[in-house]
Design a binder for these strands. Sequence first.
DNA 1: TTCGTTGCAAAAGGTTTGCATACCA
DNA 2: TGGTATGCAAACCTTTTGCAACGAA
Lengths: 146, 146
Amino acid sequence: MTDTEERPKGARGRAPALRRTRQRRAVLDTLGRCREFVSAQELHALLADSGSTVGLTTVYRTLRELDRAGLVDVVRDDGGERMYLRRPAGEHRHHLICRGCGRSRPVDSEPVEEWAARLAEITGFTQLQHTLELSGVCARCAAPPS
Amino acid sequence: MTDTEERPKGARGRAPALRRTRQRRAVLDTLGRCREFVSAQELHALLADSGSTVGLTTVYRTLRELDRAGLVDVVRDDGGERMYLRRPAGEHRHHLICRGCGRSRPVDSEPVEEWAARLAEITGFTQLQHTLELSGVCARCAAPPS
DNA sequence: TTCGTTGCAAAAGGTTTGCATACCA
DNA sequence: TGGTATGCAAACCTTTTGCAACGAA
């Protein structure tokens, strides 16, 4: 069990003072264009393809920032690799990912949210967090390969 | 934890023919004694402490076998490390883990199971699998440091 | 000028694999 | 005996970090 170190999310009102750099803009832009989850490595490759020279390190760092800022949804693929998808609204969403084609679709997870909330009451646990990874095989991929 | 579904890994009815070796017995035994999730590395350390000489590789391999056989629940900690906990019955369970002390407690996840089942119908996805990681701060850890 | 940002190379860390050896059945 | 299982070392991979150079404000 890795002990989670204290991380007071409610940081002192300090403004991070993010700078708008060419690299960050490129990452944000490319990520925004992705409709499916992408890994840092994939994103780095995409950036390279589009001619943007952005270091892999920077991609990782930027993605981490976005995660902290709650601007992306993050899941882990089977290999433990983190996958990112830009989050439209401020709400966190859950996605159902097809193991065949990799496409994902957001799902209504209200029941889960409610259940989690109830769980907090029942167990006395506070600051509940949950990560939900859903996968399956979509109708198209399940269909006969004709 | 992942819903264990059929392993269509093209398994031609071959019998795995597991052998009962000293190492496997030791791993199984030590794992069975653990009441909380443990990582492969931790398990390896525990084995070493108890005098059992089992290679780390073997621990990893055995754990993977157990996972495939659906005999353990697996979660990933914040660092992406896999944590294992022997599964009592054949049922898969979800656990709520305290970020303070690391202790876990199984929770009733029926609502989630039902929701997932309904989701399958609605979306047309088949062979749904889900992994749910729940964490929070237990009452004891949240209590004032007296 | 200042100090956040970048990027390369290297370090970390967990997990897997190659391969010769040991051993259960 | 034959095919498994083991274990060491090396390989793999993703992610992080050290540090000198860079550039937005």
